[in-house]
Each structure stands twice: as structure tokens, then as C-alpha cells.
């Protein structure tokens, strides 16, 4: 498989100033677990829309994670 094809299998995940490339085909919940993040503490959005924990991450998805814990 070429590098271009490999790239297409992945999704981009952004949390604050961090970015990851992850394999697509897993659920939003599995994605968080994979990144060692607690699903209770983050929301997952795709193209600005909130997605539920069982939503499958597709190749090329731009995922933004929203941390929900605040200091208060």
C-alpha cells in the first residue's frame, strides 16, 4: 500500500494543541481509550457535531475532542 493510501485509512484527532493520526474503523469510545483518555472526561465531535460513543470513526474524519473538566 502506498503512503497516500495508508494516510486515507486514518482519521485526524485534535485535543487543544495536540494532534494524533489514528486508524479509522473504531468507535469514538475506543478512540478515547486508545489515547488513554477517560470517556467520562471528553466529548467527541466530528465536523463540529457531537457524536455518540458508539459512532464509528471513518477514514479522513476530522475529530475534535472537547475536555469537559474545568477547575471552578
Amino acid at each position: 500500500m502506498s503512503d497516500v493510501q495508508k494516510q486515507a485509512e486514518k482519521a485526524t484527532v485534535v485535543l487543544r494543541r495536540q494532534t494524533w493520526e489514528v486508524e479509522a474503523g473504531i468507535t469514538a469510545r475506543e478512540l478515547l481509550k486508545k489515547l488513554n483518555l477517560n470517556p467520562q472526561s471528553y466529548l467527541v465531535t466530528r465536523d463540529g457535531e457531537l457524536i455518540s460513543e458508539d459512532t464509528i470513526i471513518r477514514p479522513g474524519d476530522k475529530i475534535r475532542l472537547v475536555a469537559v473538566i474545568s477547575g471552578g
Partner: peptide, 27 residues
């Protein structure tokens, strides 16, 4: 739960201050 208030703000398109107070680090 905090994730529910965050989800509400997100779904209603409320543009809120996402950065933490700089003094709350390590609180």
C-alpha cells in the same frame, strides 16, 4: 454531570471560554 453541561453548550452553539483560568492549573 459536567459532560452534560458541556454537551448542552456545544449543541446550542454557545461559544464559551474553553481555556482554564491560568491559576487553576494543578488545582
Amino acid at each position: 454531570y459536567e459532560r452534560e453541561t458541556a454537551a448542552y453548550a456545544l449543541l446550542r452553539g454557545i461559544d464559551y471560554m474553553y481555556e482554564e483560568c491560568p491559576f487553576s492549573v494543578g488545582a
